[in-house]
Design a protein around this nucleic acid. Structure first.
Length: 648
RNA sequence: GCACCCAUAGCUCAGUUGGAUAGAGUGUCAGUUUCCGAAGCUGAAGGUCGCAGGUUCGAUUCCUGCUGGGUGCGCCA
């Protein structure tokens, strides 16, 4: 669990942390110092709200009777103002019933706090690398999971108070871009490059600025917090240069000569076809690759034109998906081009590099190849070219040396887990990543069709992501028409957008990411069960209360009296725990489970405890609980990148 | 051959350093609507946690072996 650095007091601990602290103090007083309390939410209502399971383990270690130890622990346990009943049960469980007034107090704190009273850990510089499509192709369903899981993780980490950098490590480099550029010139510009002169000059200026930035990078110092950073003049200059690049690049992307590619996939296919059929075209393409990698400004302009076209397509997908990635988060493979020879020389200097069959490789004895020998990681091909492993190493190096990140999470398909293990191992050995810099591969399984096989069209083609999203919105629109035909069409479209996209995202996010998952339109778009539409509907029910309420005292005291009120309050009071848990484990499905349980608790509360027809202080208190529920649901869903609606 | 992931109710899935009678949803059956949105709520039935051992007060969880499924393992990313 995430630790806080501030002095532990009642106010900056989650309930579990607070109970653990008190139970451990009691264990210590009972002669079992150092034993963990093992606090968890109780499995059943009759076992209270939380249970401490640590006594059995402690008794075993001390070779004493667990019931007797439990008796001593409970006698020493100070939960004044926190619990109103503590019981010993079974072999030595301690069941804790929280005091309603204590829960009410937690809710008051959450109500008066912008971030719902969550406990903030010490902020960390974290990067989340996700989505990362190859720009030579249109985005397809294979990009969906990384994009939405990564986005949810980035949002949760930022909400938890961390300094989060999103990184879209797009594939924008390599041999296929020569082919694409050649086709761009031929098919879209009719071989006429005269209109590019302005952009070529811009490109030359960008290269000049980048050289100056590289020089500045050597002037990093330690700031007052001990962080490595650019200081004073260097920092000012760095920011100026960054701003100028941004402006220059924006001017380029505005100058696309009216080009629009509605069918990137077709563009890619046709360029490949030309490459295969026409020798002269193929030679031009190869020539462009060489020029591109040596920094030829004219080819760079053409390349950037294609990249911008492709990124515009990505932007459209992200916008439709409600994903928070934008151009500032892009740092593609091309960004590391100049670092690749440095990676090679660093590895050589560290004595890790060897030549094998003409290629520069690193042998890793930690991994075995099919012949049982040390696994080779190819750093540079025999023709001098580099591979994605080299780029990834350069990225790790950059993320430490320049960005000084403390944690990097890679939201990438599980099939690449071996690659990441090797990458992380070599990064440590080569000193690209120090021991205190966490590198995590957040892996996920494959998206399957309803037949249990990888998700494809009927004819076996990959499904374009934008088409999948449009279908989700179309299906949601049909549902809205059935349920609520009287709404204005514009409203129905807006609801369909939120429901369709929410359904696709929630279906994915609510499952444990490590396993493959089965894509099912009917299940994800159902308004019953653990789905986005159900949660969105729950939210509108709370919202509707406030449409009808009129005047009320929004700062009235919260009083927990009825069992359904207590259960809802208990759920609300655990929001901080789930945020901390998801921050640690990068498992958004835990947040989904939480929100579903919250929605259910609210529905039960709604059945059992009339709000608007109650009177006086009871009415105000229930309104306050409902308002906090709405805020929590909205915040939780927005962390998943899912929109809520006031009516649907 | 080696490595990683997975196997839990008819179906889709949870299960937090090993904890109490393994939980949700869906589907099935039953109840519930003078009351804030019934797209709700309540209840019932439904399990050899893939198989076999081991560790211990206690194993779905940890270890070993096996079966079955997925994925990966030197010049693609």
């Amino acid at each position: 669990m995430t630790q806080t650095t501030a002095t532990p007091t009642l106010a900056n601990l989650t309930i579990s942390q607070l109970l653990a602290q008190r139970v451990e103090a009691a264990l210590s007083a009972a002669g079992a110092a150092g034993a963990p309390a093992v606090i968890q939410p109780s499995g059943k209502p009759e076992f209270g709200d939380f249970q401490a399971n640590g006594v059995m383990g402690a008794a075993k270690a001390a070779k004493t009777n667990p019931r007797e130890l439990a008796t001593k622990v409970v006698a020493a346990l100070d939960l004044a103002g926190i619990a109103d009943k503590v019981e010993i049960a079974g072999p030595g469980f301690i069941n804790i019933h929280l005091a309603p007034a204590f829960l009410a107090q937690r809710l008051e704190v959450a109500r008066n706090d912008e971030t719902l009273g969550i406990i903030k850990p010490a902020p960390q510089k974290v990067m989340v690398e996700y989505s990362s499509p190859n720009l030579a192709k249109e985005m397809h369903v294979g990009h969906l999971r990384s994009t939405i899981i990564g986005d949810a993780i980035a949002r949760v980490l930022a909400f938890a108070g961390h300094d989060v950098q999103r990184c879209n490590h797009v594939g924008d480099w390599g041999t296929q871009f020569g082919m694409l550029v050649a086709y761009l010139v031929e098919a879209e510009l009719n071989g006429d490059l005269s209109s590019l002169q302005q952009d070529v000059r811009t490109e030359e200026r960008i290269a000049e600025i980048n050289r100056e930035i590289d020089k500045l990078s050597s002037r990093r110092e330690h700031d007052e917090r001990g962080q490595v950073a650019l200081l004073g003049d260097a920092l000012t200059r760095f920011e100026e240069l960054k701003a100028e690049i941004e402006k220059l690049e924006a001017s380029e992307s505005d100058n696309l000569h009216g080009l629009e590619l509605h069918d990137l996939e077709g563009f890619y296919r046709k360029s490949k076809q030309r490459f295969d059929e026409d020798e002269a075209f193929a030679n031009r393409a190869r020539d462009y690759v060489v020029k591109l990698q040596s920094g030829d400004p004219e080819v760079k302009v053409l390349w950037r034109m294609f990249v911008n076209l492709s990124l515009a397509h990505c932007d459209a997908v992200y916008k439709k998906l409600n994903v928070s990635l934008n151009r500032k988060d892009i740092r593609g493979e091309s960004a590391y081009n100049d670092d690749l020879p440095v990676v090679v020389s660093d590895l050589r200097a560290a004595g890790l590099l060897e030549e094998s069959q003409g290629a520069q490789v690193v042998f890793l004895p930690e991994f075995k190849n099919p012949e049982g020998e040390a696994q080779a990681m190819i750093i540079q091909k025999k023709d001098g070219g580099y591979l994605y492993a080299t780029t990834d190493l350069a990225a790790v190096r950059y993320r430490h040396r320049t960005l000084d990140l403390k944690r990097v999470v890679y939201v990438v398909d599980a099939r690449q887990s071996l690659h990441f293990q090797q990458l992380f191992t070599l990064s440590r050995k080569a000193g690209f990543a120090p021991a205190d810099m966490a590198l995590e591969h957040v892996a996920f399984g494959t998206m399957m069709g309803e037949d249990g096989k990888p998700f494809k069209t009927r004819s076996g083609d990959t499904v374009k992501l934008i088409e999948l999203l449009d279908e989700a919105i179309r299906r949601a629109y049909e549902l809205v028409n059935e349920k609520n035909p009287s709404l204005p069409d514009e409203t129905r479209s807006r609801i369909a957008q939120a429901v369709g996209i929410g359904a696709v995202k929630y279906a994915d996010l609510s499952k444990n990411r490590t396993s493959d998952y089965i894509f099912n339109w009917k299940a994800m778009l159902s308004f019953e069960g653990n789905t986005a539409p159900y949660l969105q509907y729950s939210y509108t029910r709370v919202a509707s209360v406030f449409r009808k309420v009129g005047e009320f005292d929004s700062s009235a005291a919260i009083v927990i009296a009825e069992p359904a009120e207590k259960q809802l309050a208990l759920q609300l009071a655990q929001f901080d725990e789930v945020i901390a848990f998801v921050s640690d484990t990068c498992q958004p499905h835990q947040l989904c489970s939480y929100l579903f349980a919250l929605a259910q608790q609210f529905s039960r509360f709604y059945e059992a405890c009339p709000i608007l027809s109650a009177e006086g202080a009871v009415r105000d208190s229930r309104l306050a609980i409902a308002a906090l529920t709405a805020r929590t649901m909205k915040a939780g869903l927005s962390l998943l990148g899912i929109a809520v609606l006031e009516e649907m």
